[in-house]
Each structure stands twice: as C-alpha cells, then as structure tokens.
Computed example of a mutant assay.
Amino acid sequence: MALDPSMFQGHPVNRSATERRAATLGTRRSVKKLYQAAWLVNAIRLIDLTTLAGDDTAARVRRLCAKARRPLADRIAEGLGIADMGLTVGAVCVYPTMVPHAVEALEGSGIPVASVATGFPAGLMPLDLRLREIEWAVAQGAAEIDIVITREHVLRQDWQALHDEIRQMRAACGDAHMKAILATGDLQTLRNVYAASMVAMQAGADFIKTSTGKEGVNATLPVGLTMIRALRDYGAATGHRIGFKPAGGMKQAKEALAWQILMKEELGRDWLEPDLFRFGASSMLGDIERQLEHHVTGRYAASHRHAAS
C-alpha cells in the first residue's frame, strides 16, 4: 500500500507501561511438566536455525541442515511419543553464498532456506547492489529473504525514503517471502520502532523482525510488544496478517516460552504457527533439547550429549 503516515505519526508508546507489561510474562504465566514440553516442541517448529558467522563453510551449513531435519535426538522424540511427528525447524537461515549448500542439504525435507541480504548486517551499500543481492539469493533457491533497513531513514524520520526502499526490496524478492529487519537496538525510541514497523508493513513486508543479532541490544520483550501492537493495529486497519520474528541473543528455552506466551496473549493462537511467527536462533535449540530430555528422563544431560547446531 502507499505510505500512510496517519497510521503511525503521533502514535504514543508508553515505555514504562510497555516494560511493566513485558516484565509480567514470566511471573503471571507459567507452564509446567507436560504442558511445558508441548510448548517447547512447538517452539522447535518456529525456529529459523541460523548460522551467520564470518567463518561459515559448506560443511558447517550441512551440519546445521542435518540438525534442522532432526532437531531432537531419537531417544528424546521416542520418549515424548512424537517419533512419527516429522518434527523439523521452521527454516535454515544463512548468508547468500551459503544458500546453494543449504538448498542441496535440505532437498526433499520441505524446510525453506532463508537468506540474509541487502548488505547484512549494516545495510550500508548502494541500493542497486542490495537489490541485486536479493535477486541473486532468490535465484540460488532462497525461499525467504531477511532484508535490513537503512536506519538513517528512521532516525531522520524520512518515512517516504524508507517506504520506497523497502518497496523496491519487496519487488526484488519476487515469490520469496520478505522479512524486514528493523535493527531496533539502533532506533533509539519505541515510537521509532512502532513507526518503522508500520512503514515496513505498508511497503510489503511479510514479516517484521527485531534485529540482525549484531547490534548491542537485540530482541527484547518491550520492543517485541511494541512491534506486536503495530502488527495488531495494522491488521485491524487493513485486514492483512503480517508475521513477526524476534532474533538475536535468545539462548534459553524459557525465552521461547515467554515469547510464545506474549504472541498468544496479544495476537492469538494463529501466531504460534511458522507462517506467522519465527525465532531467529541457533543455540536456543540446544537448551530446548536439554529441557525436553530432562522431561523424559528426569536428568539433565551434559551439553556434549546433544548434537551441535
């Protein structure tokens, strides 16, 4: 849709109230035993299993894809009674040059390959090169593209420039889904986070995503709540449902529970499915697997007992 500043300009965001609301998630709501195990199994379905390191290799990507296909050890899946469930992660996320390796390793699995693009993580490349990077990644087989926005547009509140940039990126993605990374740790205020979320959705983002994982502050629940409220407001105004992806710094199973509780309370059960909600994570899967083994056996296994992701 065309840029409509009336949907976000002047929209108040009460930081203290937002922080209080987020702080209650771990105290007012808790799930235990079999219910906790079920929520953690669902979290696995929502993970974009990610490697975005400077020393990534084809071999590392193949190992990651093997973990994506079988995220739980057989003994744990059998103990939970889900050995025949066909459980996999939501996607595998890599750099563009790693896309061909991931596509080959995931062939026949139904797991999509997501690629970061547009000069990730800073995004400070000429726009034409960023668009060509998107097109290249899609041509290599990426089904999802995680783009990064130009933070300067937000800090200057140049909403038209931000909208035009994202709209061109959306066009370059073609049939691939586009996740717009807002790099919220760089945006200074929650009002900016709300406005950037709205502009990204108006410009055609299929998902809005908190962070690259490379900022000083990544996914936090108050920022997530602000973005989720923008999702809700946008849906109420347009009738379109947009997905959400927190990413960066999430390592523990309890974080997967808190984010899912937030999504269910704010947006409903539909947002606990991979088409509308993803986690950008890698090490969190290891802790989820460890917690599920404790549920099955009553004991915590040493970390070396679980396959590295």
Rank of each mutant, 00 (worst) to 15 (best):
I145K: 01
V148D: 02
E152L: 15
H153K: 11
L155A: 10
Q157G: 06
W159K: 03
W159I: 08
Q160D: 12
Q160L: 11
H163L: 06
D164G: 06
D164A: 09
E165M: 10
E165R: 03
I166E: 01
R167C: 05
M169F: 12
M169N: 05
R170D: 03
A172R: 00
A172T: 04
C173A: 14
M178N: 05
K179G: 05
A180Y: 03
A183L: 03
D186R: 10
D186Q: 14
L187I: 07
L187W: 04
L190D: 01
L190N: 02
V193F: 06
S197R: 02
A200P: 02
G204P: 00
A205D: 07
D206N: 14
F207E: 03
I208E: 00
K209G: 02
K209A: 04
S211M: 09
S211W: 02
T212Q: 06
G213P: 00
K214P: 00
G216F: 08
G216S: 15
V217R: 13
N218R: 07
T220M: 09
G224W: 00
T226I: 11
A230G: 08
A230H: 04
L231M: 11
L231A: 10
R232K: 15
D233I: 05
D233P: 13
D233H: 11
A236I: 12
A236T: 12
G239L: 09
I242P: 02
I242A: 04
G243E: 07
P246R: 03
A247W: 00
A247Q: 00
M250N: 07
K251I: 07
Q252S: 15
Q252P: 09
Q252G: 14
K254P: 06
A256I: 11
L257P: 01
A258K: 09
